[in-house]
Every structure is written in C-alpha cells, then in structure tokens.
Design a protein around this nucleic acid. Structure first.
Lengths: 202, 202
DNA sequence: GAAAAAACATACAATCTGCATGTAAATACA
DNA sequence: TGTATTTACATGCAGATTGTATGTTTTTTC
C-alpha cells in the first residue's frame, strides 16, 4: 500500500482515468454543450492525454454516452430515494414527480439529458438508458396507480407521454416559467388519469 | 427567355440561391443530421459555392435555422388547413391532432424539429419559432375547448405540456410504436382535460 | 525473469469552419 | 449613358478538431 502512486494495478488506473474523463467532460458538456466542447479541452481538464481518451472510449460520442448514463442514474437514484416510504401509489407518484423536478434543477442536467443527449445519441439510445435507469419508475408508478382495467399497451404510451410532459415542465421551469403553473397543471393531468377520488369518483 | 440566365435582378439571384441552399441542406440535415452534414457537401448539392452560403447566412447554424423555420411553417399550414371547418372546439382539437401526426410523418421532420432543432438552436429559439408558426394553434384550441374557469396561466402550461406529449407520441410512432395506443391515450388525456361530457359530466 | 498484454503518449492525415481578400454582376446616380 | 458604388459571389487561407497509426512505458502472465 506504500507505493500507491507509483505502482498501480491496471484496474485502478483504468478506473481513475475513466472517472477523471467522465467528471471533467460532464462539466464541460453541461456548460458549453456537446458540439462546443473539444476533446483537447476535455483531456486538459481531466489532466490526461487524448491517447488515454481514445484508449478508453471509442470516440467523443462514446464518452458523452457514459456521461449521460451516469447522469441518468443519478437522477433515478434521487427519485427512488424520495419515493421509498410513500403510503399509496398516488402519493409515490407525487413524491417522485417532486423529486424529478428537484433532480433536474441541478445545473446542466437539462442540457445533457433533454437536449444534447437525444440529438447526439439518438432516441433509441436515450430510451434504452432511460428504461435501464429511472424511466421505469414513472411507468411502474402509473401501473400501480392506474385502474387495473387499463389496457397494458396504453399504459406504456401514457407513461411515455407523461414523462414527456414532465420533461417539458422541467425545461420550462429552468427557462424561467412559473413552477406553480406547471406543477398544478401536472397534478390536474395526473389526477385526471389516475382518477383522484376526491374529484372524480368512479 | 434566353438571357434569363445571364441577366437577373439581385432579388431574383438572392431568392434562387437561398432557396437552393435551404432545399439542399434540408434534405441533408434530415437524412444525416446537423452534425454530420458539412458545408462543402451542402453547397455541392445546391450547386453553389461556400462563398455564397456565407454571404447569405451568418454560419451553418443560421442556415439550419432557416430550414427549421420553413419546416415548422409547413407543419403549421397543414394543421391549419385541416381544422378550418371543424364544428366544435373539441373537434378542431382532434382534427388538428390528427393533422399534426400526418405532418410529422414526413421523412426527416422529427429529426429536424424535435431533435437537432432544440439541440442546435436552443430551447428559446425553437420556442419562438414554434410560437410564430404552429405552436399557437394548440394553445388556441385548448383555450377554446377548456372550461373558462381555468386559470389563464395554467392554460399556457397545459398547452406546453400537451404539445410535448404530442411530440413524444410522434417520435414513438415514427420509431415503430403502435399508433393506436398513443392516439387513444392522447384522447384520454385531452378528454380528461377538456372534460368530455359523455364520460365526465361536470 | 522474459513474453505478452494493457495503458498510455505522440505524431499525422483528413476534414471542417469561418474569414479575408479578390472579382464580376447589378444598381444608383449624375 | 457612363461611371461609382453596392451587392452577390468566388477562392484561398488559418486555425482547430477528430480519429488513427505508431511508438513507449507499465502491468500482468507464465
């Protein structure tokens, strides 16, 4: 353990290099966007050479994909933590929504996950990342909250579109829109779907 | 008619060059995406030099903005045409929605308007273009269809998020999802908001 | 302890973008 | 009508970027 800096296992070297690259590029991608961030700038910020970058990642887009995956995981974790102890399915849905807004308020996340991500990686890739991380949460919440008679195929469509509405709300709020208007409208939407017993008894 | 090619007014020259550039780049941007389309390729397809491009447009993004604007206008026109003779506000909303899906099925539109557009031009620019062209349609439709008691600030938020849901549905359908599931779920959403008298009397 | 593999480092070729400078056509104007 | 000026376009260049090919240094394997 004494020659930690001089002698390092390959696994440790790889881990450290990848981490440095992902962290440094995450900041740059978030601040200036994917297109305006060059690999020379990235490796400089990560204190690494371009050779290391292209050794660990296929190309610039591959590094970006790693950044987006990490960011999606972080958002998913924050959401899951918030909804662990919700009494009802509807409550979990509400808590998850609030957590989603809080998570997306982190600087750069909207650009990474909602603008550059889909454009650079494509819809299919983003969808896959989202499904593997947090995207399932909303869908599961809906399944639990929705009346069981609902057509299963429609649940996926609903979850997808509702997630789009959440995304758009986060974008608008970040752009300076009144959060209250979006939050309330979103509640209106969810209640209309899930069927808030207080308003629309079935 | 023989010297038309030799002697042309400046206005005509400008119009022809801009049109050639916009049409040629529209096809390339739609097929390969903004990032993978170079200006040398564009001017070659337009039978024009790079000098002409940079004379008429500030940079590549400026040309792309012109393409996106034209595309948004085309979509808006198709929607407006479809909804001219709708009997009720709800019917107009439904007709407009169907027309939107039909319009977005045109090849490349989803990439131009929903992926590259927001990433390259930014959310504010896209929002401005959308508001100036077709985006107002959905908002107006909602205002007409929504109960008048609805908070005016919420109408904008609702229209925004509903438009996001439409966008996401168009993306999913283009990616191979079952159109019926999205259309039905969308109807469910709209009905829940507008308050379909058949299902949810108020 | 030598061979093989992994992890980097460096140099290079191919592009691309935006600009600066040069030319020809059209318009303004006297 | 002929010249000056502006507009529209053409060409060449400088700077920068990306991905790769090739070389070097650690680890690991045997």
């Amino acid at each position: 353990m004494q020659e930690k800096n001089i002698r390092q296992s390959n696994q440790a070297r790889t881990e450290a290099t990848r981490k440095a690259l992902i962290q440094a590029s995450r900041m740059l991608f978030a601040e200036k966007g994917y297109a305006d961030t060059g690999t020379p700038e990235i490796v400089k910020a990560a204190a690494v050479t371009r050779g290391a970058l292209y050794h660990h990642f296929r190309d610039k887009a591959d590094l970006f994909a790693a950044v987006v995956r990490a960011e999606a995981e972080a958002v998913a974790n924050e959401i899951e933590e918030s909804a662990v102890d919700a009494p009802t399915a509807a409550a979990a849905l509400a808590a998850g929504g609030a957590a989603y807004f809080a998570a997306m308020a982190a600087p750069g996340r909207i650009r990474l996950l909602l603008f550059d991500g889909p454009a650079v990686l494509g819809h299919a890739a983003i969808r896959k990342i989202d499904a593997a991380t947090g995207g399932g949460a909303l869908r599961d919440g809906l399944i639990a909250a929705l009346p069981k008679t609902t057509d299963p195929a429609s649940v996926d469509a609903l979850a997808d579109m509702l997630s789009a509405a959440f995304d758009r709300a986060a974008i608008a709020i970040a752009a300076g829109a009144a959060p209250a208007a979006y939050r309330e409208s979103l509640c209106l939407l969810v209640d209309a779907l899930v069927g808030d017993p207080k308003k629309n008894p079935r």
